[in-house]
């Protein structure tokens, strides 16, 4: 096992953290790393990736600007055949999981989704770990077939690597199949704040806040700590917050270093979305709230009283 191909996903203003973390992990396994970046003009993303990869392949094509499965899979397939990696990694984002799943069918290759760990066995085959059943168990997964072996990497599972010597960037101008689905528009949610799946710190609010206006307090705390804002299913269903902020089984799975929840009861479906978080702090008025069982620190109190006092204490 020598080379890892890492599919790098662009985000507004850079590249997705899970892509960097995947590059860092591949490097730490002693593999030589090839990063694949794509877009109509991927040069900025290519430069960002080059600090973490030995080689960067930057594919430029207007049809690669947004994600179309068939175009991106065709590119990834072509590059995989050229590079012959043993490992192909992608970020376990909505797009990444989509792309790598279809790629695995295209290549007839084994795939493990949203891995939280990967090691190389003495025989050179990878063994990966991934959460199943909503995080209630961890599956230790072996790859049976021949390489390449595919995996998507959970954001936050691996450390963010420090930048190293810049790898060589090669521009590609691939021929692509005609795309059959077109992205006609992109609507950005939530504006300036980092997305809940990208953040190191997530501050979540739930029904216990009582009123949508109370989320202003959550936002102020998030800004103070440089955090993303998360939301429980209840407040998304009630129309207080956008679904893109939802943490849970039917929303986003997040693994930030710090997860703080105000007024969230911690029902199973919510916990399933953040069980991988580092430190978990729960503030809830109800001493019986199930969330306390999944927390490192708990405070029984009214979020509407605690938040203003906390903001004052933090000078926010």
């Amino acid at each position: 096992m020598t080379t890892a191909l890492v599919i790098v996903e662009r985000s507004s203003g850079g590249i997705r953290r899970a892509s960097l973390e995947a590059l860092g992990k591949a490097r730490s396994l002693g593999l030589s790393t090839v990063a694949l970046v794509a877009g109509s003009d991927p040069s900025a993303a290519a430069r960002a990736a080059s600090a973490h990869a030995d080689r960067v392949l930057a594919a430029a094509h207007p049809d690669l600007e947004r994600y179309d499965a068939e175009a991106h899979v065709a590119l990834a397939e072509r590059v995989t055949r050229d590079v012959s990696p043993s490992l192909v990694l992608g970020p376990a984002t909505s797009t990444g999981r989509d792309l790598v799943a279809r790629l695995s069918a295209r290549l007839g290759a084994g795939y493990a989704a949203e891995i939280t760990d990967i090691t190389i066995d003495p025989d050179g085959r990878p063994t990966a770990r991934r959460a199943v059943h909503g995080g209630k168990a961890v599956a230790v997964v072996a790859f049976e077939g021949p390489p390449p072996w595919l995996a998507t990497v959970r954001p936050g599972a691996f450390p963010t690597p420090s930048p190293g010597a810049a790898g060589k960037i090669e521009m590609l101008h691939p021929a692509l199949p005609e795309i059959r689905t077109r992205v006609v528009s992109f609507e950005e949610a939530g504006g300036k704040r980092v997305h809940v799946t990208e953040a190191e710190i997530v501050i979540s609010g739930g029904r216990g806040l009582g009123d949508p206006a109370a989320f202003t307090l959550i936002e102020r705390l998030a800004d103070r700590l440089g955090a993303a804002v998360g939301a429980s299913r209840a407040v998304v269903d009630a129309g207080w917050r956008d679904a893109s902020e939802q943490v849970g089984k039917s929303g986003n799975t997040v693994a930030p270093r710090l997860y703080v929840a105000f007024g969230v009861s911690g029902a199973v479906h919510h916990v399933m979305g953040m069980a991988g978080a580092g430190t978990v702090v729960v503030v809830n008025r109800d001493p019986a709230a199930p969330f306390f069982k999944h927390a490192d620190h708990g405070l029984v109190g009214d979020a509407l009283v605690v938040l203003p006092a906390l903001l004052e204490e933090l000078g926010a």
Binding site: Y111, A112, A137, V140, V141, A295, D296, G298
Partner: peptide
């Protein structure tokens, strides 16, 4: 092509410390 060898318990959190 991919097989689960074994299942493990998720990393356990120590009991919550209440403020």
């Amino acid at each position: 092509l991919v097989r689960t060898r074994v299942f493990e318990r998720p990393p356990a959190r120590p009991p919550v410390r209440m403020m």
